[in-house]
């Protein structure tokens, strides 16, 4: 017991070392939240392009210029999905940090947000696409036959329904991202993991800071898991209504 208190004193209290954990946690949350938002935006755009391309292939109801534009956009999306999902996120981050944003005018946190956002977008795109495809074709036909444009039908009829379907999956994506951001230390970001690591290098005590950091991750993922489950139950209730 005395040993534990001593270890906590050494790793957290001395020299205000708990600040490494708090600041790290703050960065981890900032990166996760904004990367999720960026990922949702990117994912939605990619999913819409791919779904529109698939729909149009079936109905063939566009003029030739829009068709060419759509085909190019669809190819770009496919390349994006293949490259991002086929390479490790650490490498993507390092390319951003060491090759693209070399001026250091952009902060590491910003680069991490961009990197994880682009990465998450590729996975969210497929989630969105499955959601969009799950909506009955009759919904699109009803919207269009009322005179609504394709974009308006998507906006007011298809996307709101699809969003409801995939909300739990998006929540899980957020939880996955919390853990994935632990590699942000590679690009000089002091996130939660890096904060614990710094303490370890100062105190030569590996157990205490790593267990604390692991405990915080576990706590975060558990809390959000419960939240997602609640959300799921709520959504089902609405369906029955």
């Amino acid at each position: 017991m005395e040993n534990i208190l001593k270890a906590l004193q050494l790793n957290l209290i001395k020299d205000n070392r708990y600040l490494y954990i708090l600041d790290g946690l703050k960065n981890t949350m900032i990166i996760t939240i904004f990367a999720t938002i960026l990922g949702i935006i990117l994912g939605l755009i990619v999913a819409l392009i791919r779904t529109t391309y698939d729909n149009n292939k079936k109905s063939n109801s566009m003029n030739s210029i829009s068709q060419v534009v759509l085909k190019i956009a669809n190819s770009l999306c496919n390349i994006y999905l293949t490259v991002i999902r086929g390479t490790p996120v650490v490498i993507q981050l390092m390319i951003l940090f060491f090759c693209i944003f070399t001026s250091r005018e952009v902060s590491g946190v910003m680069i991490a947000i961009i990197g994880f956002g682009i990465n998450s977008g590729a996975y969210v795109a497929e989630v969105f696409r499955s959601g969009l495809m799950s909506i009955d074709i009759g919904q699109m036909e009803a919207g269009r036959s009322l005179g609504l444009s394709y974009i308006d039908t998507m906006k007011y009829i298809i996307i709101p329904q699809a969003f409801k379907v995939i909300l739990p999956t998006l929540g899980n994506e957020f939880i996955v991202l919390i853990k994935e951001t632990s590699v942000a230390g590679y690009v000089a970001v002091q996130d939660l993991t890096k904060g614990g690591d710094i303490i370890r290098s100062r105190t030569y005590d590996a157990w205490t800071p790593l267990l604390i950091v692991a405990g915080i991750y576990l706590f975060l993922t558990c809390v959000f898991s419960i939240f997602v489950k609640k959300l799921e139950i709520n959504l089902r209730k609405n369906e029955r209504k």
């Binding site: 009955d136 009759g138 919904q139 036909e141 009803a142 036959s145 005179g147 009829i157 329904q161």
Partner: peptide
């Protein structure tokens, strides 16, 4: 076609009301 469709009403076998 959107201009045309607003003058042509359509009723489907499966209603296709918007559930949300």
């Amino acid at each position: 076609i959107d201009e045309i469709r607003k003058k042509i009403g359509m009723v489907f076998q499966h209603f296709n009301l918007f559930p949300h």
